[in-house]
Simulated scan of single mutants.
Amino acid sequence: MQDEHTAPLLDYYTRHHASTQWRAFLTALAEEFETQLETAQLRELMARIGVRFADAHPAIACATLDDLASFFNKTWSSLDWGFVNLVEQNDYLAIEHFCAPLAAFGTAGAIWTPAFLEGAYQRWLHALGAGTLALQQVETGNLHALEFRLAKAA
C-alpha cells in the first residue's frame, strides 16, 4: 500500500493528525509513564484502556468479515482514528489499522501505545464469539499501519 509517492503524505498525516493542543501533553505523559513503568506494564495498561474503550463502544452483530470491517471503520472514523483493512489468511485474520493518531505520544510510545488497539480489538472479537482465539500485534515495518493477528493461541 505504501510507495515512494504515498510515504511523504502518510508521514505528514501522521505528524499532524493529532490536535496540536494534545501533542505536547501526550508526549510529556508518555515520558512520565516510561519513567514509572516497564514496557510490558505500559502495554498491559494500554490494553486495559482499550478494553474500557471497547466496552464504551460495544460491538454490533457482525455476520461477515465485511460487517466486521464496517463496524471497525465506522467506530474509528467517527473518532478520526484512521481506518481498518481485514485480510483473511489460511491460519489467521489480519487486522491492519492505518493512521491511528498514536504518534502524538512521541516516538518512544510506539512500542507500547498500540496495545490500546490490541485491547479494544480483543474485547470486540471476544464479544463477537472469537472464543479462545488470541489477538497479537505483529511487527511489519510499516510506519503507518499497525497489524494485529487473530489466531489460535500458541
Rank of each mutant, 00 (worst) to 15 (best):
M1R: 08
Q2P: 09
D3T: 07
E4D: 07
H5I: 10
T6C: 04
A7S: 11
P8H: 05
L9E: 08
L10N: 06
Y12G: 07
Y13F: 14
R15P: 05
H16P: 08
A18R: 06
A18Y: 05
T20D: 11
T20R: 13
R23N: 08
R23Y: 08
R23F: 09
R23I: 13
L26D: 12
L29Q: 11
A30T: 02
E32R: 13
Q36I: 03
Q36V: 05
A40K: 06
A40F: 08
L42D: 00
L42S: 00
L42G: 00
R43T: 07
E44F: 10
E44M: 08
L45I: 07
M46E: 12
M46W: 15
M46R: 14
R48Y: 13
I49M: 13
G50E: 03
G50H: 04
G50R: 01
A54L: 02
D55M: 14
A56V: 05
A63I: 07
A63S: 15
T64K: 12
L65Q: 07
D67W: 07
S70P: 06
K74Q: 12
K74V: 05
K74I: 03
K74Y: 10
W76G: 01
S77E: 09
S77F: 08
S78E: 07
S78I: 04
D80C: 12
W81Q: 10
W81T: 03
Q89G: 11
Q89I: 02
Y92H: 15
E96K: 11
H97C: 01
C99K: 05
A100D: 02
P101A: 02
P101F: 00
L102H: 07
A103F: 09
A104D: 04
F105N: 04
G106W: 03
G106K: 01
G109S: 06
G109P: 01
A110V: 04
A110G: 15
A110Q: 15
P114I: 00
F116A: 02
L117M: 07
A120Y: 00
W124P: 00
W124H: 04
L128M: 00
G129M: 01
G131C: 13
G131M: 11
A134Q: 14
L135S: 07
Q136H: 14
Q137G: 12
V138I: 14
V138C: 05
T140K: 06
T140N: 05
G141S: 02
N142F: 02
L143R: 13
H144Q: 00
H144S: 00
E147R: 14
F148L: 06
R149A: 02
K152H: 15
K152N: 13
K152I: 12
A153M: 12
A154M: 11
